[in-house]
Design a protein around this nucleic acid. Structure first.
Length: 230
DNA sequence: AGAAGGGCTATGGGGTGTGG
DNA sequence: CCACACCCCATAGCCCTTCT
């Protein structure tokens, strides 16, 4: 780790804790306590208001904060999707940690970014088939931009169809992504396995989902079905 | 060569437990 | 309640090694 990175890490650690000892910092950052003392001294000389108290530890003076570190929508989607994967596929501890990270990220976001965070239309990351990356990008974009998509689809019985859909979210079920969308043809929610979408064309038309056609409506529907079957 | 980091040591201050 | 001992930890100096 570069020294500059370590100094940044120290301020980050101090921000998240009440009192932090040099020993703790040394263990966390993999250096000696003497090095931490020098780092703290240098941070102080750089204007970072760190208070040190013998027998207690270090803490940042109240009110001190770093210049805002902000994320764009794409970065937020990347973080949320990644953490949702960990949450889904990791153990209990990892799941808790992922939730904790999500809460922390959410807490520091301004209101408009919090909305983007909540509306992240990715419910699992990592699509398995690399050849589908282009399609995935299209579908992801259409979810984000609320852009209608014309898809050509081949179902399990090899029936081909062509329909205009309102993409709402992508779900990963273990081996393939499925696109959840409101189907104009069926006037209902439909899921489309991405590996069965033979072609997708983003249309120059945007949609606004009315009540009953929104992602939250679908999630409620699923939740209700789970409750009645269990 | 100079910077960074580690080991060792000494000093001083705060927190805590204990006994009177 | 107070004094005291002890522990923990910050701080700093010195010297040596390692890294860039």
């Amino acid at each position: 780790m570069r020294r500059a990175d370590r100094l940044f890490q120290i301020t980050q650690i101090l921000r998240g804790r009440r009192n932090t000892t040099a020993k703790y910092l040394a263990e966390r950052l993999g250096v000696g306590e003497r090095t931490i003392y020098r780092d703290i001294r240098d941070l102080g000389l750089s204007g970072v208001p760190i208070e040190g108290e013998a027998g207690v530890g270090y803490r940042l003076k109240q009110g001190f904060d770093l210049p805002p570190l902000m994320f764009n929508i794409g970065e937020i989607h990347a973080m949320v999707a990644g953490l949702r994967l960990i949450s889904t596929w990791g153990g209990n501890a990892l799941k808790q940690q992922a939730h904790s990270v999500l809460e922390k990220i959410y807490a520091i976001l301004p209101i408009d970014k919090q909305i983007a965070f909540e509306r992240t239309p990715l419910f699992a990351p990592e699509f398995v088939n690399a050849s589908q990356r282009g399609l995935f990008d299209q579908l992801h974009q259409s979810c984000q931009e609320q852009q209608k998509v014309l898809i050509r689809y081949r179902d399990g019985q090899q029936n081909h169809s062509e329909r205009i859909v309102h993409p709402l979210a992508l779900f990963f079920w273990g081996n393939t992504w499925t696109l959840l969308a409101w189907c104009e043809l069926r006037q209902a929610f439909r899921s489309f396995r991405s590996d069965r979408i033979t072609e997708a064309e983003l249309l120059d038309q945007h949609f606004i989902s009315p009540p009953g056609q929104q992602l939250q409506d679908y999630l409620r529907l699923i939740e209700h079905e789970c409750d009645t079957t269990s």
